[in-house]
Design a protein around this nucleic acid. Sequence first.
DNA 1: TAATAAATTTAGATTAGTCTAAAATATTAT
DNA 2: ATAATATTTTAGACTAATCTAAATTTATTA
Lengths: 216, 216
Amino acid sequence: MNTFTEENYLKAIYHISLQSGSVSTNQIAASLNTKAASVTDMLKKLAEKELINYTKYQGVTLTTAGEKIAICIIRKHRLWEYFLVEKLNFKWDEVHDVAEELEHIASKELIDRLDDFMGHPKYDPHGDPIPDSDGQFKTHELKPVSTLTVNESGIISGVRDHSSAFLQYLERMQLIIGKKIKVTEINNYDHSVILQVENKKTHISREVANNLLIVL
Amino acid sequence: MNTFTEENYLKAIYHISLQSGSVSTNQIAASLNTKAASVTDMLKKLAEKELINYTKYQGVTLTTAGEKIAICIIRKHRLWEYFLVEKLNFKWDEVHDVAEELEHIASKELIDRLDDFMGHPKYDPHGDPIPDSDGQFKTHELKPVSTLTVNESGIISGVRDHSSAFLQYLERMQLIIGKKIKVTEINNYDHSVILQVENKKTHISREVANNLLIVL
DNA sequence: TAATAAATTTAGATTAGTCTAAAATATTAT
DNA sequence: ATAATATTTTAGACTAATCTAAATTTATTA
Ligand SMILES: [Mn+2]
Ligand SMILES: [Mn+2]
Ligand SMILES: [Mn+2]
Ligand SMILES: [Mn+2]
């Protein structure tokens, strides 16, 4: 098996590659709060184990084996987050750090039974898809509220920023996964947006509109 | 906070001291499948942190702080075992190894909410008491079936041997926590015991009778 | 009490993961 | 194309946890 540290590197590489395509040493270092020199050392080890493709100075990609491990960790992370929110009544902004620990519990049996126990949820509390036992999951195409024009509407389905500050703000504003919203006005000057949410109007900044994701 | 390794040492010291009173370097090494030299190194570190009282060649005892940590780990271990059996349908012989990992998840909030979720169970699946949030727990006085005489009875309430071989055997024989048993006969030659369990008779060896615990 | 055996500690190495500082390579801008 | 800058890798050192082998201390037993 792999160490916690190796698992965290694989997960970081997976997440970065989803956004930027290629994955650089510095990106990994930033994402794991470590130094580039440490990353280089670990990349050599992961390449040795054939979990990544690595050529000096050229960045890395996951091998099939590496990606499988990364997705398995992400499955565990998101299932535990779902458990914490749905069964133990944690708030959606409180679960990430505990899930960072729980995701490294090895037992596959455990996570599959937990999945059964909760009825095979498809999305975690932040709207991110939960891979199934075989690592399969579908990404629904999400777009930021900021891409909508006046009178367009959608259903809140995810967040781009996972920070607890942002999550707490959304909860306070009742901008919660599953709610239907409609854009009633866009401010010409600062691009802030006024939303119709149920029977209330809510005014959000451009930045919030950029980080709040919907499906049509 | 403490490392997993430190936590495992504290837990081992706690368990050994319950049985043998004093705790020697070799006992710890045996219990953790490591070498005496490694134990000595760790004892120095734990003494430095004031979690144990240690004088060279004299064995160790836990300080109040050390005992508090040990009990906290044991609470987590036993609550997770309860969760695995009661909520995820694991068998009682399958949960120990996973609990050995889960017990090191740090969050106190998590374990207290898990405790709430399950309704504050008092005993784990093997009959061992679960310390409450403040580390308090009561030990009911258990005695081995082998101490009973003919016609005495009791309720199965714990095991002395936690090996899966023994647990699987008990389950196969339907000798399960909570069942009432009565000694109907004791074999003079090999000290094996015949039990009345509900409407059936069950024949168990001296060794099993020694490792199966009851309350009167 | 002195010799022997057992338990424990020390000395010196090893491995995983990390760091800083310096060297090498790649990128960008003139 | 060359110089300046940014990125990445290497070199060398550190900590935590472990090991084996040797030295020391304690316990046993003659
Ligand atoms: Mn998360
Ligand atoms: Mn999430
Ligand atoms: Mn156990
Ligand atoms: Mn148990």
